[in-house]
């Protein structure tokens, strides 16, 4: 199969205005992916499916990922004039990275027997902007999996023929796979001797550190 760089440049040549970024993947698995802008994603994936070289006709796995808002703390050296003398001071700066939801598609070819080409799309934010184009018209296999993402992550797929909740019941309101999901206190509560155990278990699990030393920012008030 061609390298990801070649695929990227071919997509950009074939579809005017498409912006494709290669998302590197450190670690031994080495499965980098293509991040495609939402506007041109449908056309780009169609290109990947129909291109005579690639023929990625089989969409294996579709899944969502939730990335929370986070702030990265940095110390920047700044020159300032203190009492008429220029000094170099360390100033703490915070960069706020807004959170987003991601949909990840793993495409393979049953004809050429190669793959995966991993395609990602990102929503603009985690609230009202959680919209992505649906790939169900291209791959039927995305039908239930996109419904699952809609159900568990709350991403609305535009162009999906039948977007409903799939695993949770229809009256359910939240999206349980989101990282900031809080379980309600009142469903099917039963007093078990296990409660004490759970309470104690909390002590063992410390707050999760994030990748680049950033701190998670809760979206809860």
């Amino acid at each position: 199969m061609e390298s990801l760089e070649q695929i990227k440049s071919r997509i950009e040549a074939a579809i005017a205005g498409a912006s494709v970024t290669i998302v590197p993947n450190p670690g031994p698995a080495n499965q980098p992916s293509l991040l495609i802008d939402n506007e041109h994603a449908f056309a780009a994936v169609q290109f990947l499916r129909d291109d005579a070289e690639l023929r990625l006709d089989y969409c294996s796995s579709v899944t969502g990922v939730d990335w929370l808002d986070r702030t990265v703390k940095k110390t920047v050296k700044v020159k300032e004039i203190v009492d008429g003398v220029e000094k170099e001071i360390d100033r703490a700066e915070e960069e706020k990275i807004p959170g987003y939801l991601e949909a990840v598609y793993h495409l393979y070819s049953t004809v050429r027997k190669h793959g995966p080409v991993i395609v990602r799309m990102r929503t603009t934010d985690r609230l009202d902007g959680a919209h992505l184009p649906s790939m169900t018209p291209l791959y039927r296999s995305a039908e239930f999996q996109e419904r699952e993402i809609y159900d568990l992550y709350g991403v609305t797929f535009e162009g999906h023929p039948d977007l409903r909740r799939i695993l949770m019941w229809d009256e359910f309101e939240d999206h349980p796979m989101r990282k900031d999901y809080v379980q309600p206190d009142d469903f099917e509560y039963e007093p078990t001797p296990h409660d004490e155990v759970l309470e104690r278990a909390k002590e063992h699990y410390s707050e999760r550190p994030t990748i680049d030393g950033a701190e998670p920012v809760s979206t809860q008030p």
Binding site: P26, G27, A29, N30, Q31, S60, S61, I211
Partner: peptide, 17 residues
């Protein structure tokens, strides 16, 4: 180490990833 990975096998029912 940090990174991501998709691994799949041919399960008796189909592709288990």
């Amino acid at each position: 180490p940090a990174g991501e990975c998709y691994g799949r096998i041919e399960g008796p029912k189909g592709e288990l990833g």
